[in-house]
Amino acid sequence: MTTAAQRSYFGKALVELGRARQDIVVLDADLATSTKTSDFASAFPDRFFEVGIAEQNMIGTAAGLAACGKTVFASTFAVFATGRCWDQIRQSIAYPGMNVKVVSTHCGISVGGDGASHQALEDLSLMRTMPNMTVISPADAEEAFKATLAMADWHGPCYMRMGRADFPLITGKEDEFQIGKANIMKEGKDVSIVATGQMVALALDAARILKEGGVNAEVVNMSTLKPLDTETLADSLARTRCVVTAEEHSIIGGLGSAVAEYLAENENYPLLRVGVKDSFGESGTPDELMHKYGLTAENIALSAKMVIGKKTKKRKGFLWRK
């Protein structure tokens, strides 16, 4: 399967935006060649501002530019973008509703060798809790491209996360992308696998594994975590009546939590969450780490079978827990 890095497509999208719109301004904190904002910097040096290793100042500066009518993209690694300057994002961007797009790369465990200090597993949680913030997690590079364009047309604060590694390209140029709209990648009736980021590709693999065992899984690409597309979620659950979430993020605060929150108040269907189980990462190759932390198609498939089991037992009137 063809693969591509989300950040490369993000860089291309910024250049396209920069060409079309004079109001696009980009900031980076000494990581432009990694986040690929360097493409924009080369094309439009006057509208690119290097701020140095000073992320908090980058966010404040972005807010000031936005207050004067600019559409601002501010990029760095996710650990810094969301952790180090959470308060700056809260005070200067989210609260006043500034038109700033915080776009991070190097999310999740697949960052690899850099280890836990650079593997953001809490960023979705940190951004999702903030009022006024839209939170986007594209499934592949193609979606990252479309999401970048979509954010520029979406007035207000946005956060988008991307990975470091090349991810399988599972969506096409012609596929629709809309902020706040989940896409059903594969229809099914036995279980909903709701995934985000590169876990959508693994969810599709899991669905193939399940099919061999006679299980027909539905795969939902939840590319926006906030606002959560509860309509698509509810439709899918009405068909399958059980759900597995899959994310390259802590199981606390991210997609799994968002779905759990929805279920707790609206539906009585069993849920299992695939994600990093409340721990930091470590160094290793992306593949080794994805396996060690259970972020695999096999684990999603196993969780799907387990959650289907819970569904059956409940329906027959047995208590799942003794």
């Binding site: 966010i59 500066t61 530019l65 207050a67 600019k70």
Partner: peptide, 17 residues
């Protein structure tokens, strides 16, 4: 501690425009 950063962004915007 955050206002001066915002002011910097506004000063940059004036120059851009």
């Amino acid at each position: 501690g955050q206002g001066l950063s915002v002011a910097c962004g506004m000063a940059l915007a004036a120059r851009l425009d």
